[in-house]
Computed example of a mutant assay.
Amino acid sequence: MSPNAPLSVGAVVLTMNDRPVEFPRALACLLAQEGIDLDVVVVGNGCVPEQVPAGIRTVVLPENVGIPEGRNVGAAHVRGEFLFFFDNDAHLPGGDELARLAAELDGDAGLAYVQPRIADPDTGVTLRRWVPRLRAADPARPGIVTVMAEGVVMIRRTAFEAAGGWPGHFFLFHEGIDLSWRLWNHGGTGRYVPDVITHHPATDPSRHTPYHHLNARNRVWLARRNLPRALIPVHLATFSVLTLFRLRTRSALTATLSGFREGLHTPCGPRSPLRWTTIARLTLAGRPPVV
Rank of each mutant, 00 (worst) to 15 (best):
A90L: 13
H199Y: 15
E97D: 10
P194M: 04
D87F: 04
V147H: 07
E104I: 13
G188F: 12
T266I: 04
A202W: 06
R229W: 10
P205C: 07
R191A: 12
A137H: 04
P132K: 05
V291L: 14
V220W: 04
V145D: 06
E150M: 12
D178G: 06
L247N: 08
E69L: 01
T249W: 05
F239S: 07
H77F: 04
F84H: 13
A11P: 09
D87G: 12
A202F: 08
V12G: 03
W130S: 13
M148T: 15
T283Q: 05
V13H: 00
E69K: 01
A109N: 08
V60W: 00
P93F: 13
E81H: 03
L92N: 09
H213K: 08
D122M: 08
N64P: 01
E104Y: 11
R141H: 12
G94W: 05
R275F: 09
G168R: 00
F82I: 10
P270K: 08
R19P: 03
P53L: 03
T209H: 03
T123H: 01
L7N: 06
N64F: 00
S251T: 15
T15G: 06
A162Y: 05
N4G: 14
T123V: 06
V147G: 02
A285G: 11
R135C: 08
A237N: 00
R135W: 07
G124N: 06
F84K: 09
E34Y: 01
F170E: 04
S258N: 14
L61K: 02
V42P: 00
L274R: 07
L231K: 07
P228Q: 12
N72V: 02
G10V: 08
R141C: 11
W130T: 14
P62C: 03
V193M: 02
S240N: 12
L222M: 11
W221E: 11
G187E: 08
I144C: 01
A103V: 06
G35D: 12
R19C: 08
P228A: 12
L105T: 14
D122I: 14
G168T: 01
F84G: 10
P233N: 11
V60F: 01
V42M: 04
L31M: 13
R100T: 15
T278N: 10
V13Y: 00
R224S: 09
A99N: 02
H235L: 03
E97C: 11
A255K: 12
G107F: 07
A112G: 13
V43P: 00
G10T: 14
F170Y: 15
L227W: 05
A136W: 10
N72T: 02
G80T: 11
N17V: 09
R57P: 07
L31S: 12
A109M: 09
L253P: 11
V59Q: 04
D89S: 11
G168S: 02
G110R: 08
P93G: 14
Q33A: 11
G107I: 10
P3G: 10
V78I: 04
V153H: 02
I144A: 07
